[in-house]
Design a protein around this nucleic acid. Structure first.
Lengths: 124, 124
DNA sequence: ATAGATGCAAAGGGTTTGCACTTGA
DNA sequence: TCAAGTGCAAACCCTTTGCATCTAT
């Protein structure tokens, strides 16, 4: 990503304006507000480039297609609502994971995903 | 899955003999030892059926294709070795996840995945 | 001017499905 | 016997890629 184009600006803007991790298709839909001619291929290319540059980061959730969110957030995890399928940021962490690591293994990262019903779906 | 066929027996057997979560392709390879003519389509159909029946359960790991393992194991999580890509069972759990749940949300399940180097890869 | 970026359509990789044939009960 | 199960190939869905065109520098 060496040039500044209106497509890439639009895609970067989407991540500035949306906190939850987004699917490529959602990025396309949102960025088309700025650039209606935007194609999905360009979105994929931009997502890969922006991720390589560290502007956004991939968010892999179990049984979910890969999403992306703005990079540089502080440590957090995600909550997946089983009803509306929305993904929420959870600013907390469980801590004590070190003791889960089997003897002889070395852990360098961990991922926690919570499942359940979000507040909105709960009310209904 | 109402009939007993040699294909399905072979697939069930694979899960009896292999603890770590398996990919469909691995199931095919292993089950072909019993039934060489086995097709991938049959594996997929059997995996879906066995999962529906609760004989096996899907194991969804972030950024990994869905795997399956024998159902009924006690609560555990998984460790993914970044070097050899093998998946290990971790019999422990971090506990204290309740406090991560945002106000108004209800959590009914959680998934923890640890990443790093397994003992074998560590030695090298 | 020209290398990089875009859009389209085709190609890939993994999973599912339609259909004729086979087989368990 | 005959509905359920199998194997094959085609269909699907999502992501990547080839290529002609466009455009930022």
């Amino acid at each position: 990503m060496q040039r500044e184009t209106k497509q890439r600006d639009a895609i970067r803007l989407v991540f500035e304006q949306h906190a939850p991790p987004l699917l490529p298709g959602e990025v396309l839909r949102l960025a088309r507000r700025e650039v209606p001619s935007l194609s999905l291929a360009t979105v994929y290319r931009a997502l890969n480039a922006l991720a390589r540059e560290g502007v956004i980061q991939p968010v892999a959730l179990p049984a979910e297609a890969p999403r992306y969110e703005k990079a540089g957030k502080r440590h957090h995890h995600h909550f997946v609502c089983r009803r509306c399928r929305r993904v929420f940021e959870v600013p907390a962490c469980a801590g004590s994971m070190r003791r889960m690591v089997p003897a002889g293994f070395v852990m360098d990262d961990h991922e926690i995903t919570l499942y359940g019903a979000c507040a909105d779906c709960r009310r209904r």
